[in-house]
Each structure stands twice: as structure tokens, then as C-alpha cells.
Nucleic acid binder design. Structure first.
Length: 271
DNA sequence: ATGGGCACCTGGCTGC
DNA sequence: TGCAGCCAGGTGCCCA
């Protein structure tokens, strides 16, 4: 479900309610997420004060006095802030109950999400330590992208979705960024020119920023912390628009499969 | 190291 | 109505 803009929208939505609050209790209804929720989790977070709500790639980091909650929304996960008396629905797997009376509730039908606890620096956690730069950082730029694409035979779309290249570019925004940069998704990464690397890095930044600005993309069931959808769907050039006329040149948008994921592109605009 | 494919899971939609 | 088949925003892991 969520890509970086949706995760960031969620982070911004939950941070004000969490920061400075005390976690009064935690309720786990289903421990079987991507990795089982540790038995000690409830004890570890109980009575802790939240002093940070951060994001690294698509992981949300909730920092408390004794450690950090590392959570991932997977494909179908979402977080909502609800009042304490809101009944839990199907697939509402856990609640963090704040002493304010608010509840941070995790909903995830497919259970690809995860909830992990670390007492170490989260940046050193095995799942985080090898991640590439953040797409919106200065470290990620055309020169960097050009350099790491040399000698790489994989298709550029799969390359930009690889978390060793850059983090946070999922299936929607990979197609959208390539459209904006006018690069065909099947091009070998090593065939991208220096100028194209600059255009692509900038396109990735631009599309993610634009999506964050209006709350991300809602395709099926994504909602932010208040339960509202994101509006970036109306701004998509190619994603889920197979057969529809390209918004630039009117020729039909094409679809094919790369690495078991659907790719959308315009063969007239992209080369 | 690199690239490719599979696995994890539920639900919604399509077509017979 | 039922059911099979396919598809869906992610990513870690295993294999060649």
C-alpha cells in the first residue's frame, strides 16, 4: 500500500499526538505480522514517553526512553489515531494506548507489516543499516545516480526501486518518475546518460515532494492518520492508466510486467 | 556482487 | 451464487 509519501503523511499525522505523550498500555490482538511481534513488546513500551517520531525509508521510528519502535506498513498497513472507545475492527492488530486517551491503531489485512523493538541505535538495525540514501536528501542526486548505474545491466525501473540505490521509490512513483524524466522503463541502468541521471534524480524528488504535499496516493484503501485519503491519484501520469490517453501526447499508455510488478509508460514520450 | 524468482497474506474484482 | 483465477502500494531471502 504505502510508498514513501504515504508513510511520511502518516508520520506527520501521528507525530503531534504522540510526541511527549506517555504510552499507558499496548494491546496486541494478532502477533503474526511479517515477523511475530515479540512477547516482551508490551512490557518494553509501557509507561514510556515518546520523544521522537521519525522515518527512515518506509520505516517509522517511534523513539521512547529505553529504545525505538520500528514499524513498517507493508502493502496494506495503515495507522489511525482513534479515541479510546472506538471498537476494533477486523485486521486491527495492535493499539498503542496513550495516556491522553488517544489510541494509535494499526490495521493491516495482509499482515505484511512489521513491528520491531530495538534498544540499539535504529540506524544499526539489520533492516536499516544497509539502506541507500533518502531520495529527498542532497546525497541523492544526479551525480550519485549516474555513478552507481555504471556497469549495471538491470532495467532502470527495477534499479530505482532497489533499496540499495535509493529508498522510498515504490511501484507507483517509479513509473511516474520515469515518465517525468522521459526514460523508458526497460532501459539498462548503465545506458542512462549523465544528463538523464540528473533528470531522473530530480524527477524522483519532484514526484515524491508533490505527492507528500497533497497527502499521498490513495488507490484502494489507504487513509492517513485521520482516516482521510490522499489526492495524488488525480496527478498520476501513467500508473494504473493502461490504454488511457497519455496526458501529454494522447497516445495510449502501455503496461507490462517487470520483476512481477506492473509497469506503466508512454512509448511516445519515453525513450 | 548481481540478478531473478519466491515467499509471506487477505480481499476485491472478473468471468464462467 | 459460487468459485477459480488474477491482481494489489513491499521487501527479505534463497539460489544460480
Amino acid at each position: 500500500m504505502p510508498e514513501l509519501p504515504e508513510v511520511e503523511t502518516t508520520r506527520r499525522g501521528i507525530a503531534p499526538a504522540l510526541l511527549g505523550s506517555r504510552i499507558a498500555d499496548m494491546i496486541v490482538r494478532e502477533r503474526r505480522l511479517r515477523w511475530p511481534i515479540a512477547a516482551k513488546f508490551e512490557t518494553a513500551v509501557r509507561d514510556q514517553i515518546v520523544h521522537g517520531v521519525d522515518r527512515r525509508a518506509k520505516y517509522l521510528l517511534i523513539r521512547v526512553g529505553t529504545g525505538t519502535v520500528i514499524l513498517h506498513l507493508g502493502m496494506s498497513g495503515s495507522l489511525r489515531l482513534v479515541s479510546r472507545d472506538t471498537p476494533a475492527k477486523k485486521h486491527d492488530h495492535w493499539d498503542l494506548i496513550l495516556d491522553s486517551g488517544m489510541v494509535l491503531r494499526f490495521h493491516d489485512p495482509r499482515r505484511f507489516g512489521s513491528l520491531l523493538w530495538t534498544e540499539d541505535d535504529p540506524a544499526r538495525h539489520p533492516l536499516l543499516k544497509k539502506l541507500a540514501p533518502e531520495p529527498l536528501s542532497q546525497e541523492f542526486n544526479g551525480a550519485y545516480l549516474f555513478k552507481i548505474t555504471r556497469k549495471r545491466a538491470v532495467a532502470i525501473k527495477q534499479f530505482i526501486m532497489n533499496s540499495h540505490t535509493v529508498v522510498g521509490v515504490g511501484n507507483i512513483y517509479a513509473s511516474e518518475a520515469l515518465f517525468r524524466a522521459k526514460i523508458a522503463p526497460r532501459r539498462a541502468a548503465r545506458r542512462i546518460t549523465q544528463a538523464e541521471a540528473v533528470k531522473l534524480a530530480n524527477a524522483i524528488k519532484a514526484v515524491l515532494k508533490a505527492a507528500i504535499k497533497i497527502g499521498g496516493t490513495t488507490l484502494r484503501d489507504y487513509v492517513n492518520a485521520d482516516g482521510a485519503p490522499g489526492y495524488f491519484r488525480q496527478k498520476l501520469f501513467v500508473y494504473e492508466r493502461a490504454q488511457a490517453p497519455c496526458r501529454v501526447c494522447k497516445s495510449p499508455v502501455k503496461q507490462f510486467t517487470q520483476g512481477q510488478r506492473s509497469t506503466y509508460w508512454c512509448s511516445t514520450c519515453q525513450h
